[in-house]
Design a binder for these strands. Sequence first.
DNA 1: CGTACATCGTTAGTGGGACTAACGCAATCG
DNA 2: CGATTGCGTTAGTCCCACTAACGATGTACG
Lengths: 160, 160
Amino acid sequence: MTRAEAADVPDADAPQTPGRLRRLASRLLSQLTMRSDRLINEGLARADARKWHYAVLASLEEYGPGSQAALSRRTGIYRSDMVGLLNELTERGLVERAPDPDDRRRNTITISSRGRRQLRRLDKVLDELHDELLAPLNPAERDQFTRLLTRLLDHHTGTS
Amino acid sequence: MTRAEAADVPDADAPQTPGRLRRLASRLLSQLTMRSDRLINEGLARADARKWHYAVLASLEEYGPGSQAALSRRTGIYRSDMVGLLNELTERGLVERAPDPDDRRRNTITISSRGRRQLRRLDKVLDELHDELLAPLNPAERDQFTRLLTRLLDHHTGTS
DNA sequence: CGTACATCGTTAGTGGGACTAACGCAATCG
DNA sequence: CGATTGCGTTAGTCCCACTAACGATGTACG
Protein backbone atom coordinates (compact mmCIF):
# COMPACT_ATOMS: atom_id res chain seq x y z
CA MET A 1 0.00 0.00 0.00
CA THR A 2 2.88 2.31 0.68
CA ARG A 3 6.49 1.66 -0.10
CA ALA A 4 7.84 4.21 2.29
CA GLU A 5 5.58 5.57 4.95
CA ALA A 6 4.09 8.79 3.78
CA ALA A 7 3.82 10.52 0.49
CA ASP A 8 6.26 13.25 1.17
CA VAL A 9 8.01 12.93 4.46
CA PRO A 10 10.12 9.78 4.71
CA ASP A 11 8.84 9.58 8.24
CA ALA A 12 7.09 7.05 10.45
CA ASP A 13 3.57 5.69 10.06
CA ALA A 14 2.33 9.22 9.71
CA PRO A 15 1.51 11.59 12.53
CA GLN A 16 -2.09 10.56 12.54
CA THR A 17 -3.28 7.49 10.79
CA PRO A 18 -6.95 6.91 11.47
CA GLY A 19 -7.44 4.26 14.13
CA ARG A 20 -9.68 2.36 11.79
CA LEU A 21 -6.78 1.88 9.46
CA ARG A 22 -4.23 1.20 12.12
CA ARG A 23 -6.10 -1.81 13.43
CA LEU A 24 -6.95 -3.36 10.10
CA ALA A 25 -5.17 -6.71 9.91
CA SER A 26 -5.07 -6.54 6.12
CA ARG A 27 -3.35 -3.21 6.26
CA LEU A 28 -0.89 -4.28 8.90
CA LEU A 29 -0.05 -7.24 6.74
CA SER A 30 0.47 -5.14 3.64
CA GLN A 31 2.65 -2.64 5.37
CA LEU A 32 4.74 -5.13 7.22
CA THR A 33 5.21 -7.20 4.10
CA MET A 34 6.40 -4.16 2.25
CA ARG A 35 9.04 -3.55 4.88
CA SER A 36 9.91 -7.18 5.01
CA ASP A 37 10.27 -7.45 1.26
CA ARG A 38 12.51 -4.44 1.18
CA LEU A 39 14.64 -5.76 3.96
CA ILE A 40 15.02 -9.16 2.35
CA ASN A 41 15.54 -7.86 -1.15
CA GLU A 42 18.22 -5.45 -0.08
CA GLY A 43 19.93 -8.03 2.07
CA LEU A 44 19.98 -10.56 -0.70
CA ALA A 45 21.09 -7.99 -3.24
CA ARG A 46 24.18 -7.44 -1.09
CA ALA A 47 24.89 -11.13 -1.63
CA ASP A 48 24.27 -10.77 -5.38
CA ALA A 49 21.08 -12.77 -5.10
CA ARG A 50 17.34 -12.45 -5.23
CA LYS A 51 14.72 -14.33 -3.31
CA TRP A 52 13.98 -16.46 -6.33
CA HIS A 53 17.55 -17.58 -6.51
CA TYR A 54 17.14 -18.92 -3.06
CA ALA A 55 13.86 -20.59 -3.85
CA VAL A 56 15.25 -22.39 -6.86
CA LEU A 57 18.50 -23.43 -5.21
CA ALA A 58 16.68 -24.69 -2.14
CA SER A 59 14.24 -26.62 -4.25
CA LEU A 60 17.05 -28.18 -6.25
CA GLU A 61 18.94 -29.24 -3.19
CA GLU A 62 15.90 -30.61 -1.48
CA TYR A 63 14.28 -32.45 -4.36
CA GLY A 64 17.10 -32.88 -6.80
CA PRO A 65 17.32 -31.87 -10.46
CA GLY A 66 14.19 -31.15 -12.40
CA SER A 67 12.71 -29.60 -15.49
CA GLN A 68 11.95 -25.91 -15.57
CA ALA A 69 8.28 -26.65 -15.30
CA ALA A 70 8.90 -28.81 -12.25
CA LEU A 71 10.86 -26.02 -10.62
CA SER A 72 8.03 -23.66 -11.39
CA ARG A 73 5.61 -25.89 -9.59
CA ARG A 74 7.87 -26.35 -6.61
CA THR A 75 8.72 -22.74 -6.11
CA GLY A 76 5.58 -21.01 -7.26
CA ILE A 77 7.55 -18.98 -9.76
CA TYR A 78 5.80 -18.63 -13.06
CA ARG A 79 7.40 -20.62 -15.79
CA SER A 80 7.39 -17.46 -17.86
CA ASP A 81 9.73 -15.86 -15.37
CA MET A 82 11.74 -19.01 -14.85
CA VAL A 83 13.64 -18.48 -18.08
CA GLY A 84 15.31 -15.27 -17.10
CA LEU A 85 15.85 -16.48 -13.59
CA LEU A 86 17.70 -19.57 -14.76
CA ASN A 87 19.76 -17.39 -17.05
CA GLU A 88 20.87 -15.42 -14.03
CA LEU A 89 21.70 -18.57 -12.15
CA THR A 90 23.65 -20.16 -14.98
CA GLU A 91 25.54 -16.93 -15.58
CA ARG A 92 26.69 -17.17 -11.99
CA GLY A 93 27.53 -20.82 -12.38
CA LEU A 94 25.17 -21.88 -9.65
CA VAL A 95 23.13 -24.15 -11.81
CA GLU A 96 23.48 -26.18 -14.97
CA ARG A 97 21.03 -26.53 -17.79
CA ALA A 98 21.24 -29.71 -19.81
CA PRO A 99 18.82 -31.35 -22.21
CA ASP A 100 16.96 -34.26 -20.67
CA PRO A 101 17.96 -37.42 -22.56
CA ASP A 102 14.67 -39.10 -21.65
CA ASP A 103 12.40 -36.34 -22.84
CA ARG A 104 13.89 -34.03 -25.36
CA ARG A 105 11.31 -31.38 -24.74
CA ARG A 106 12.76 -30.44 -21.45
CA ASN A 107 15.90 -29.11 -19.90
CA THR A 108 17.11 -30.65 -16.71
CA ILE A 109 18.37 -28.18 -14.19
CA THR A 110 21.04 -29.29 -11.75
CA ILE A 111 22.58 -27.43 -8.87
CA SER A 112 26.35 -27.03 -9.05
CA SER A 113 28.72 -27.26 -6.13
CA ARG A 114 29.12 -23.53 -6.37
CA GLY A 115 25.36 -23.36 -6.15
CA ARG A 116 25.42 -25.39 -2.98
CA ARG A 117 27.96 -23.09 -1.45
CA GLN A 118 25.89 -20.08 -2.38
CA LEU A 119 22.84 -21.73 -0.88
CA ARG A 120 24.65 -22.09 2.46
CA ARG A 121 25.63 -18.45 2.34
CA LEU A 122 22.09 -17.42 1.58
CA ASP A 123 20.80 -19.54 4.43
CA LYS A 124 22.99 -17.56 6.74
CA VAL A 125 22.07 -14.23 5.21
CA LEU A 126 18.38 -15.00 5.51
CA ASP A 127 18.81 -16.06 9.09
CA GLU A 128 20.32 -12.74 9.94
CA LEU A 129 17.70 -10.86 8.02
CA HIS A 130 14.92 -12.66 9.80
CA ASP A 131 16.54 -11.86 13.05
CA GLU A 132 16.24 -8.26 12.10
CA LEU A 133 12.71 -8.69 10.81
CA LEU A 134 11.49 -10.36 13.97
CA ALA A 135 13.73 -8.42 16.31
CA PRO A 136 11.01 -7.22 18.70
CA LEU A 137 9.72 -10.75 19.33
CA ASN A 138 11.19 -13.31 21.67
CA PRO A 139 11.70 -16.87 20.44
CA ALA A 140 8.32 -18.08 21.67
CA GLU A 141 6.57 -15.18 20.01
CA ARG A 142 8.43 -15.71 16.79
CA ASP A 143 7.23 -19.24 16.82
CA GLN A 144 3.69 -18.22 17.55
CA PHE A 145 3.79 -15.69 14.79
CA THR A 146 5.07 -18.17 12.26
CA ARG A 147 2.47 -20.67 13.30
CA LEU A 148 -0.37 -18.22 12.98
CA LEU A 149 0.84 -17.18 9.55
CA THR A 150 1.09 -20.78 8.48
CA ARG A 151 -2.38 -21.59 9.65
CA LEU A 152 -3.84 -18.60 7.85
CA LEU A 153 -1.96 -19.31 4.69
CA ASP A 154 -2.90 -22.98 4.73
CA HIS A 155 -6.50 -22.04 5.17
CA HIS A 156 -6.44 -19.77 2.17
CA THR A 157 -4.42 -22.00 -0.08
CA GLY A 158 -6.68 -24.91 0.63
CA THR A 159 -9.85 -22.94 0.19
CA SER A 160 -8.47 -20.96 -2.71
CA MET B 1 5.86 -13.59 -4.63
CA THR B 2 3.15 -15.52 -6.36
CA ARG B 3 -0.19 -14.14 -7.30
CA ALA B 4 -1.85 -17.49 -7.65
CA GLU B 5 -0.12 -20.45 -6.14
CA ALA B 6 1.93 -22.13 -8.77
CA ALA B 7 3.09 -21.23 -12.19
CA ASP B 8 0.87 -23.49 -14.10
CA VAL B 9 -1.53 -25.38 -11.96
CA PRO B 10 -3.93 -23.10 -10.09
CA ASP B 11 -3.42 -25.44 -7.20
CA ALA B 12 -2.43 -25.19 -3.54
CA ASP B 13 0.98 -24.23 -2.17
CA ALA B 14 2.52 -26.71 -4.56
CA PRO B 15 2.89 -30.40 -3.99
CA GLN B 16 6.33 -29.96 -2.55
CA THR B 17 7.60 -26.61 -1.49
CA PRO B 18 10.98 -26.93 0.12
CA GLY B 19 10.74 -26.86 3.89
CA ARG B 20 13.24 -24.06 3.99
CA LEU B 21 10.85 -21.88 2.08
CA ARG B 22 7.77 -22.99 3.89
CA ARG B 23 9.07 -21.87 7.26
CA LEU B 24 10.44 -18.52 6.13
CA ALA B 25 8.49 -15.81 7.89
CA SER B 26 9.17 -13.35 5.11
CA ARG B 27 7.74 -15.74 2.60
CA LEU B 28 4.72 -16.55 4.68
CA LEU B 29 4.10 -12.86 4.98
CA SER B 30 4.38 -12.24 1.27
CA GLN B 31 2.11 -15.08 0.35
CA LEU B 32 -0.50 -14.34 2.91
CA THR B 33 -0.48 -10.68 2.02
CA MET B 34 -1.03 -11.52 -1.58
CA ARG B 35 -4.09 -13.54 -0.68
CA SER B 36 -5.26 -10.92 1.70
CA ASP B 37 -4.87 -8.15 -0.84
CA ARG B 38 -6.80 -10.09 -3.40
CA LEU B 39 -9.54 -10.84 -0.97
CA ILE B 40 -9.86 -7.24 0.13
CA ASN B 41 -9.55 -5.76 -3.33
CA GLU B 42 -12.19 -8.02 -4.75
CA GLY B 43 -14.50 -7.46 -1.84
CA LEU B 44 -14.19 -3.71 -2.09
CA ALA B 45 -14.54 -3.79 -5.86
CA ARG B 46 -17.95 -5.38 -5.36
CA ALA B 47 -18.83 -2.26 -3.37
CA ASP B 48 -17.44 -0.04 -6.13
CA ALA B 49 -14.53 0.98 -3.92
CA ARG B 50 -10.83 0.51 -3.45
CA LYS B 51 -8.87 0.38 -0.25
CA TRP B 52 -7.68 3.92 -0.77
CA HIS B 53 -11.21 5.16 -0.91
CA TYR B 54 -11.64 3.74 2.53
CA ALA B 55 -8.39 5.23 3.77
CA VAL B 56 -9.29 8.71 2.59
CA LEU B 57 -12.87 8.60 3.77
CA ALA B 58 -11.85 7.29 7.18
CA SER B 59 -9.19 9.93 7.52
CA LEU B 60 -11.63 12.66 6.58
CA GLU B 61 -14.20 11.51 9.06
CA GLU B 62 -11.69 11.09 11.85
CA TYR B 63 -9.66 14.25 11.39
CA GLY B 64 -11.92 16.46 9.38
CA PRO B 65 -11.28 18.20 6.08
CA GLY B 66 -7.76 18.73 4.85
CA SER B 67 -5.57 19.59 1.93
CA GLN B 68 -4.54 16.90 -0.48
CA ALA B 69 -1.05 16.91 0.95
CA ALA B 70 -2.44 16.50 4.45
CA LEU B 71 -4.48 13.53 3.31
CA SER B 72 -1.39 12.09 1.77
CA ARG B 73 0.43 12.27 5.05
CA ARG B 74 -2.44 10.78 6.97
CA THR B 75 -3.10 7.88 4.70
CA GLY B 76 0.36 7.16 3.38
CA ILE B 77 -0.88 7.51 -0.18
CA TYR B 78 1.56 9.35 -2.39
CA ARG B 79 0.36 12.77 -3.30
CA SER B 80 1.11 11.88 -6.89
CA ASP B 81 -1.56 9.23 -6.69
CA MET B 82 -3.90 11.35 -4.62
CA VAL B 83 -5.00 13.31 -7.66
CA GLY B 84 -6.59 10.44 -9.50
CA LEU B 85 -7.96 9.02 -6.31
CA LEU B 86 -9.76 12.23 -5.42
CA ASN B 87 -11.09 12.36 -8.93
CA GLU B 88 -12.67 8.98 -8.37
CA LEU B 89 -14.13 10.06 -5.07
CA THR B 90 -15.56 13.30 -6.38
CA GLU B 91 -17.00 11.52 -9.41
CA ARG B 92 -18.89 9.34 -6.96
CA GLY B 93 -19.96 12.35 -4.94
CA LEU B 94 -18.29 11.07 -1.79
CA VAL B 95 -16.03 14.03 -1.35
CA GLU B 96 -15.88 17.70 -2.23
CA ARG B 97 -12.93 19.68 -3.43
CA ALA B 98 -12.95 23.39 -2.67
CA PRO B 99 -10.27 26.06 -2.60
CA ASP B 100 -9.01 26.85 0.90
CA PRO B 101 -9.86 30.46 1.80
CA ASP B 102 -6.95 30.70 4.27
CA ASP B 103 -4.26 29.51 1.96
CA ARG B 104 -5.21 29.87 -1.60
CA ARG B 105 -2.53 27.47 -2.72
CA ARG B 106 -4.46 24.48 -1.56
CA ASN B 107 -7.68 22.62 -2.08
CA THR B 108 -9.67 21.59 0.94
CA ILE B 109 -11.22 18.19 0.72
CA THR B 110 -14.43 17.54 2.61
CA ILE B 111 -16.40 14.35 3.06
CA SER B 112 -20.01 14.52 1.88
CA SER B 113 -22.93 12.88 3.59
CA ARG B 114 -22.98 10.39 0.79
CA GLY B 115 -19.35 9.79 1.62
CA ARG B 116 -20.24 9.11 5.23
CA ARG B 117 -22.84 6.60 4.22
CA GLN B 118 -20.38 4.86 1.95
CA LEU B 119 -17.86 4.78 4.78
CA ARG B 120 -20.33 2.93 6.98
CA ARG B 121 -20.97 0.46 4.23
CA LEU B 122 -17.28 -0.11 3.74
CA ASP B 123 -16.78 -0.60 7.45
CA LYS B 124 -19.22 -3.43 7.27
CA VAL B 125 -17.74 -4.89 4.13
CA LEU B 126 -14.26 -4.84 5.63
CA ASP B 127 -15.50 -6.47 8.79
CA GLU B 128 -16.88 -9.35 6.81
CA LEU B 129 -13.77 -9.63 4.72
CA HIS B 130 -11.57 -9.76 7.77
CA ASP B 131 -13.76 -12.43 9.18
CA GLU B 132 -12.97 -14.43 6.13
CA LEU B 133 -9.30 -13.54 6.23
CA LEU B 134 -8.90 -14.57 9.85
CA ALA B 135 -11.40 -17.40 9.72
CA PRO B 136 -9.15 -20.11 11.15
CA LEU B 137 -8.29 -18.08 14.25
CA ASN B 138 -10.41 -17.69 17.35
CA PRO B 139 -10.94 -14.21 18.78
CA ALA B 140 -7.99 -14.44 21.16
CA GLU B 141 -5.71 -15.57 18.40
CA ARG B 142 -6.89 -12.84 16.11
CA ASP B 143 -6.03 -10.39 18.76
CA GLN B 144 -2.64 -11.93 19.32
CA PHE B 145 -1.97 -11.87 15.62
CA THR B 146 -2.90 -8.24 15.27
CA ARG B 147 -0.77 -7.34 18.23
CA LEU B 148 2.25 -9.15 16.91
CA LEU B 149 1.84 -7.47 13.56
CA THR B 150 1.53 -4.09 15.19
CA ARG B 151 4.63 -4.58 17.26
CA LEU B 152 6.65 -5.65 14.28
CA LEU B 153 5.40 -2.83 12.14
CA ASP B 154 6.00 -0.26 14.85
CA HIS B 155 9.51 -1.51 15.26
CA HIS B 156 10.25 -1.15 11.59
CA THR B 157 8.54 2.15 11.09
CA GLY B 158 10.43 3.63 13.98
CA THR B 159 13.76 2.22 12.88
CA SER B 160 13.03 2.80 9.22
C1' DC C 1 0.02 -45.61 -37.57
C1' DG C 2 -1.58 -41.28 -37.44
C1' DT C 3 -3.91 -37.69 -35.59
C1' DA C 4 -5.70 -35.18 -31.60
C1' DC C 5 -4.14 -33.67 -27.30
C1' DA C 6 -0.91 -32.35 -23.67
C1' DT C 7 3.51 -30.59 -22.05
C1' DC C 8 7.46 -27.66 -22.19
C1' DG C 9 10.40 -23.85 -23.03
C1' DT C 10 10.22 -19.37 -24.54
C1' DT C 11 9.07 -14.55 -25.90
C1' DA C 12 6.06 -10.77 -25.42
C1' DG C 13 3.05 -8.15 -23.31
C1' DT C 14 -0.60 -6.47 -19.52
C1' DG C 15 -1.82 -4.30 -15.37
C1' DG C 16 -1.16 -2.62 -10.94
C1' DG C 17 1.32 -0.74 -7.12
C1' DA C 18 4.97 2.16 -5.27
C1' DC C 19 7.64 5.34 -6.14
C1' DT C 20 10.75 9.72 -8.50
C1' DA C 21 11.34 13.91 -11.33
C1' DA C 22 10.02 17.94 -12.65
C1' DC C 23 7.03 21.81 -13.28
C1' DG C 24 4.41 25.92 -12.45
C1' DC C 25 2.06 28.37 -9.40
C1' DA C 26 0.77 30.75 -5.40
C1' DA C 27 2.03 32.32 -0.58
C1' DT C 28 4.86 33.27 2.96
C1' DC C 29 9.45 34.60 4.88
C1' DG C 30 13.81 37.31 5.34
C1' DC D 1 10.90 42.43 -3.12
C1' DG D 2 13.30 38.03 -4.20
C1' DA D 3 14.06 33.59 -2.40
C1' DT D 4 12.14 29.86 -0.63
C1' DT D 5 8.64 26.64 0.50
C1' DG D 6 4.28 24.01 -0.02
C1' DC D 7 0.90 22.23 -3.34
C1' DG D 8 -1.29 20.21 -7.10
C1' DT D 9 -0.38 17.94 -11.11
C1' DT D 10 1.55 15.25 -15.05
C1' DA D 11 4.53 12.01 -16.60
C1' DG D 12 7.29 8.33 -16.33
C1' DT D 13 10.24 4.39 -13.91
C1' DC D 14 10.70 -0.10 -11.84
C1' DC D 15 9.27 -4.34 -10.07
C1' DC D 16 6.19 -8.06 -9.75
C1' DA D 17 2.37 -11.28 -10.77
C1' DC D 18 0.20 -12.97 -14.42
C1' DT D 19 -1.78 -13.96 -19.43
C1' DA D 20 -1.35 -15.10 -24.38
C1' DA D 21 0.51 -17.30 -27.84
C1' DC D 22 3.73 -20.25 -30.25
C1' DG D 23 6.63 -23.83 -31.98
C1' DA D 24 8.56 -28.07 -30.92
C1' DT D 25 8.08 -32.27 -28.83
C1' DG D 26 6.10 -36.16 -26.83
C1' DT D 27 1.81 -39.37 -25.48
C1' DA D 28 -2.67 -41.61 -26.02
C1' DC D 29 -5.86 -44.04 -28.56
C1' DG D 30 -9.12 -45.10 -32.23
